[in-house]
Every structure is written in structure tokens, then in C-alpha cells.
């Protein structure tokens, strides 16, 4: 068996997520587009990637990580109150953020990768 390209794909996904998030002009879901395109590219390059899983992990890391980062960096009061609003401990709010980011990124990479079929590649679900 050939090695999978999961790690490489994860690194690139993380970079893409962080880069697109720097663009304030995009709508909040703007990060989906580069990830989707990256999925198309993965498919074209015939990398072996568990696309949903890789996307999910990347999204989870970025959304949880960045929420935690900003929460510490700033006064941290808003998420504390949001947690109170849902009667949840604050860490659960971070996890929920991660799940949402993960779900969206995962779906983006997965659908990008699987959208097209090429002559040389068989349209097989790999993950």
C-alpha cells in the first residue's frame, strides 16, 4: 500500500483556513470555497486522503483553537455569557464551535474531492 497524503492535506487545509480567515471581506463561510477547491485539486492529483476526516480535523482545530485564542487574548466575557445562555460549561462552547467548523470544513473538502470523476481515477469513496 502506498502512503496516504492525509498529513500533507491536513497541513494545507489548516493553512488555507487560516489564510482565508484573514480576509474580512468574505462572508463568514468564505473558508469553504478554498477548501472545496482544494478537494478538487486533491482528486486531480490523485492523493489518497480521507477527505471528510481531514477537513473535519482542520476545521475543528481552527475553530476551537481560534475561539480559545481570542477568548484569552480579549476579555473573554462574550463566550462566558453565551455559555451561560445555553447553560453549558464554557469548554463545551469551544467544542461546539469546533464541531461546527469541523462539519463545514469536512463537508467542503469531501464534496470538492468527490464532485468530479476523471478518466484515470475511478469514482470511489475512499473514506
Amino acid at each position: 500500500m502506498e502512503n496516504t497524503n492525509n498529513l500533507k492535506a491536513l497541513t494545507i487545509s489548516l493553512l488555507l483556513l487560516l489564510l482565508t480567515h484573514q480576509l474580512d471581506v468574505l462572508p463568514w463561510w468564505g473558508f469553504i470555497m478554498p477548501l472545496f477547491l482544494f478537494g478538487v485539486v486533491i482528486n486531480y492529483l490523485e492523493w489518497r486522503v480521507a477527505s471528510f476526516f481531514v477537513g473535519f480535523v482542520a476545521g475543528f482545530i481552527v475553530w476551537t483553537g481560534a475561539n480559545v485564542y481570542y477568548d484569552i487574548q480579549y476579555d473573554g466575557l462574550v463566550l462566558q455569557k453565551v455559555a451561560l445562555l445555553f447553560s453549558l460549561p464554557k469548554f463545551v462552547v469551544f467544542l461546539i464551535a469546533g464541531m461546527l467548523g469541523g462539519l463545514l470544513s469536512g463537508l467542503a473538502l469531501y464534496s470538492g474531492k468527490g464532485l468530479f470523476s476523471y478518466q484515470s481515477a475511478s469514482p470511489v469513496l475512499e473514506d
Partner: peptide, 19 residues
């Protein structure tokens, strides 16, 4: 609107910024 609200770069957490 949970997704929007939880998005770390523009969402709720940014309102803690009092710089």
C-alpha cells in the same frame, strides 16, 4: 445563527475585543 456566531474570526468571540 450558530455558525456565524461561533466563527472565531468574525463571530461572537470578537465582541470581547475592548482594545
Amino acid at each position: 445563527p450558530l455558525g456565524k456566531l461561533m466563527q472565531p474570526f468574525v463571530g461572537a468571540v470578537q465582541n470581547s475585543n475592548n482594545e
